[in-house]
Design a protein around this nucleic acid. Structure first.
Length: 879
RNA sequence: GGACCCGUAGCUCAGUUGGUUAGAGCGCUUCCUUGACAUGGAAGAGGUCACAAGUUCGAGUCUUGUCGGGUCCACCA
């Protein structure tokens, strides 16, 4: 390996292994191959409009770590990849594209427009998957699915028809969130609240029989007054009690409306009287229903005012607002204008202000579905991590509202409903089935028209965990790989997706689709802003991969993934440097060991003959293995990667490799150095798959894939507390120094020199600059050296007769300090034990405290006492 | 309005059930091109753990309050 450059080149290596993995397909999962069983993760399908961003990089790295780990543990690990058609988002993209050619979807026509969409999907749709591939994602790429695949669409239709037949889907005329730009309905979650500084306009409505008197109402949307059909007051409001039932005239449109009483009205807000616009406000809609009011729609679907707006017709809604205000002002009916901060709903795709709009839509009745999900949740399914999101999830299920699933766009699953000329609807899996239903109804063949609308994009996404496995068909894959293990996603998507998948899973497969839900942080820039294209602060993962390597990207990302991640370019240096260190340490080991030292098990090492340093590293390694495994299982990835970083760099490289530099002719030491390295590379593989795969092929010198190797076995017997304790190292050090003193007959405070061994061992150079180290050594041992003590790189080495000793500089601990430290601890623990003893002797405490508390206290005391005895022993051995 | 999270070194963050002198990376200072690695190594400076009170033998960690930053949810017109 000596011919290999000293600097690791990620680009070359990553390209090489991507090719090998693609050819050998080690990530392909087959049902019932392994005794361990299945382990499944489904990818949160990225939108086909998507380009890889840092959030994806993090999300998929986390999934990959767990999948690779489980695969190495011997599970049939399936990571299912795929993409989402992302209805509105994709349609918007393509609409923008054709706009450049001067076209709109209407001019192009549905069929042609759909062709353009499919074309777009074909050329750009899988870009993001290619990019995920470059990241090293170990997906089973042969199974890649798309939410508009034919079989997937069958699942969508099946679910619609089933839910309809179960009475869980209905059609109705309701106020929904309407985006006048996209000209489609939006679900509640798709209409985001954003704070805005608006105004509160106070408008005077004159009485019909007394135009000089008014009732003043307040509104944030004055143009909606054109559709007012009542004014409401609280029935308990003394001010308005006598006015209930009186008739007012809506200015500008001269509509006569009544004052009604409704508990909804808050007496404290504004004037205490509310204008009621049933066709343009959800609350007013409810009031309209309660009081049988007229529903006056004043707007076209594109936000332009219609004939009902009288003189304001053909104006855009905001233009209309200005005009209405101006007209009121001129009539002297504008009482006042207040500044008013409130939340405005905006379209989550195009940020247009959403209009509450009355229209006929399809809805899913959510309560029965949510109740099942709640019941499962109360039994711990799924578990949600971190736990703080549990409440958020639960609250949403409790306060669930019906889900508007129809969208007035073209890109998506066409609603499987057909209408006859009378407007009767037939819900069916196919047109033929619908025709059959109609024939039965009418006794003859009739002409049917399919509903022009499509389904909400989430109406297909919520089937993802099982529709990707072939549902509704029964298959071995579905049987074996469902339900899945873990869902990794961002918290923003709990309602859109996570909760709904649980509902669909329960409803159609009787099982919660995943055991655990892991919600990771949002990736932010160094200033803490969300990374997004529109803010221009997005970092391109592909650029990072090109510059630092995918391993570096993954490593740094995970290392920083505690809560929200604040990322800046410099952070990837850590990952890059780590790969390089790994590379060079491996070089060092391979250069210094014989081929027969490449053992694959601790059974092949004669542990009894090993030096303290080697027993120490084996012990530390065993602990690291256990801890890393646990960290991965518990989704504490940043901790896992941190443990590995510490273990490999600080423990293995800085200490162990330095300590053994004089002992490398010992085959047992060689074996230890190699085996720990190989196993560390295995442990690192889920995190940094490329560099580890490359190193493994260097180790083995034959065609083997690390990605299919077994995760290292934990040997608890090899944990050697004695070798491990820093005290043991210290004792050894002190002993060694004593030996030197005895052998060389060194007197205290004798003049000494510290030297570096150079190429030519005969020529010795004095290094004055290492005086600090020297002083420390002297302090440590309260002796001084007469003879020269060579420093080999980072270790102090001594020769006593034919005995050599090597001590890493870091081990030179100050004995006096160590003594004080120990004494303080002994004192403190003795005090603690005394305190507990005193408490236990107190009759009052014993009579009041529960037995288990007393028992616990006693145990604690005994523990402290025992520990103190140990510490005293250590102190004695030190002195 | 409801719920949640965060405040630890100049910066970004760890700190598992309370327990030795609170850690890491970057940055900074000094030194070292030495034989795996300068994408490296050694040594060092730098923190009253936001503040206050409480529980405890012992609090960065638990409780309460205050201040500051952030997120999610929400039909006060």
């Amino acid at each position: 390996m000596s011919e290999i450059a000293a600097r690791y080149n990620p680009k070359e290596v990553e390209e090489k292994h991507l090719k090998i993995w693609d050819a050998k397909k080690p990530f392909h999962a087959t049902a019932k191959k392994s005794k361990k069983g299945a382990f499944t993760i489904v990818i949160p399908p990225p939108n086909v409009t998507g380009v890889l961003h840092m959030g994806h990089a993090l999300n998929n790295t986390l999934q990959d770590i767990l999948t690779r780990y489980k695969r190495m543990q011997g599970f049939d690990a399936l990571w299912m990849p795929g993409t989402d058609h992302a209805g509105i988002a994709t349609q918007n993209v393509v609409e923008k594209q054709i706009a450049k050619e001067g076209l709109t979807r209407e001019t192009l026509g549905r069929e042609k427009f759909m062709e353009r969409l499919w074309e777009w999907k074909k050329t750009n749709g899988d870009t993001i998957l290619d990019q995920l591939h470059k990241l090293g994602s170990s997906c089973d790429w042969d199974r890649t699915r798309f939410t508009m695949d034919e079989s997937y669409s069958d699942a969508v239709k099946e679910v619609f028809v089933e839910l309809y037949q179960r009475g869980l889907i209905y059609q109705g005329q309701y106020i929904i969130n309407w985006c006048p730009r996209c000209e489609t309905a939006l679900a509640d979650e798709e209409a985001e609240h954003k704070d805005a500084n608006g105004h509160l306009w106070h408008i005077k409505y004159p009485f019909k029989d007394n135009p000089e008197e008014f009732v003043t109402v307040a509104t944030t949307r004055p143009e909606t007054m054109l559709g007012d059909t009542a004014v409401a007051v609280n029935p308990k409001d003394e001010r308005y009690k006598d006015l209930i039932g009186k008739v007012l005239v809506v200015p500008l449109v001269n509509r006569e409306i009544r004052i009604i009483a409704d508990d909804f009205v808050d007496r404290e807000f504004g004037s205490g009287a509310v204008k009621v616009t049933p066709a343009h406000d959800p609350n007013d809609f409810a009031m309209g229903r309660r009081h049988n009011l007229e529903f006056v729609n004043i707007m076209h679907s594109n936000g332009v005012l219609n004939n009902n707006a009288g003189p304001f017709k053909n104006m855009d809604r905001f233009e209309g607002r200005k005009a209405v205000v101006k007209a009121l002002e001129e009539l002297g009916l504008l009482a006042k204008i207040d500044a008013h901060a409130h939340a405005v709903r905006r379209c989550y795709r195009c940020d247009t202000i959403v209009e509450p709009y009355l229209s006929k839509q399809w809805f899913v009745k959510m309560k029965p579905l949510a109740d099942k999900a709640l019941e499962a949740f109360h039994q711990g399914q799924p578990s949600i991590q971190p736990k703080r999101w549990e409440k958020v999830y639960e609250n949403w299920l409790v306060d669930i509202r019906d889900w508007c699933i129809s969208r007035q766009i073209w890109w998506g699953h066409r609603i499987p409903v057909w209408y006859d000329e009378e407007g009767n609807h037939f819900v069916a899996r196919s047109e033929a089935e619908a025709k059959e239903q109609a024939r039965v109804k009418w006794g003859k063949n009739v002409v049917l028209k399919q509903d022009p609308d499509v389904l909400d994009t989430w109406f297909s996404s919520w089937l993802w965990p099982f529709a990707t496995l072939g549902w509704p068909k029964k298959s071995e894959d579905l049987e074996y790989f469902y339900p899945t293990a873990t869902l990794f996603t961002a918290p923003e998507i709990i309602f859109f997706w996570v909760a709904r998948m649980v509902m669909a899973g329960l409803e159609f497969n009787g099982k919660v689709p995943f055991k655990d839900v892991v919600l990771h942080g949002t990736v932010r820039d160094a200033k803490g802003l969300k990374m997004s294209k529109s803010l221009g602060n997005a970092m391109d993962p592909l650029e990072i991969i090109a510059e630092y390597g995918a391993d570096a990207l993954r490593f740094s990302m995970v290392l920083n993934s505690g809560q929200d991640i604040y990322i800046s370019k410099e952070k990837f240096e850590i990952g890059r440097n780590f790969s390089n260190k790994l590379w060079n340490a491996s070089r060092f080991v391979l250069m210094n060991i014989k081929p027969e030292a490449k053992v694959s098990s601790f059974d092949e090492i004669d542990v009894a003959k090993l030096d303290v340093a080697s027993r120490w590293i084996i012990s530390r390694y065993q602990k690291a293995l256990a801890e890393v495994g646990q960290a991965i299982e518990q989704y504490r990835y940043s901790e896992g990667v941190n443990l590995l970083y510490e273990f490999f760099w600080a423990t293995y490289c800085d200490w162990y490799l330095e300590m053994i530099k004089g002992k490398l002719d010992d085959i047992n030491v060689q074996k230890t150095a190699y085996l720990i390295l190989e196993n560390t590379v295995k442990m690192l593989h889920p995190f940094v798959p490329f560099v580890t795969e490359e190193l493994y092929s260097e180790f083995k010198q034959k065609e083997v894939l690390l990605t299919l190797e077994a995760w290292p076995t934990f040997y608890p017997d090899l944990i050697d507390e004695k070798a491990e304790s820093s005290l043991a190292v210290l004792v050894e050090l002190v002993g060694a120094i004593r030996n030197i003193r005895a052998q060389w007959n060194i007197k205290p405070h004798d003049q000494i020199a510290l030297v570096i061994a150079t190429e030519n061992k005969d020529s010795i150079t004095l290094v004055k600059d290492n005086k600090d180290i020297l002083n420390k050594l002297v302090r440590t041992s309260d002796i001084s050296f007469e003879k020269t003590v060579p420093v080999i790189k980072n270790a102090v080495a001594g020769v006593v007769g034919d005995m050599q000793f090597f001590i890493p500089l870091g081990a030179l601990i100050d004995v006096a300090k160590e003594k004080t430290k120990l004494e303080a601890l002994i004192l403190q623990q003795a005090k603690a034990a005394d305190a507990i003893e005193g408490r236990l002797a107190n009759a009052g405490f014993v009579s009041k405290a529960p037995a288990e508390v007393i028992e616990k206290e006693r145990e604690r005391m005994e523990e402290l006492r025992a520990k103190n005895i140990e510490l005293k022993k250590a102190l004695v051995s030190l002195v």
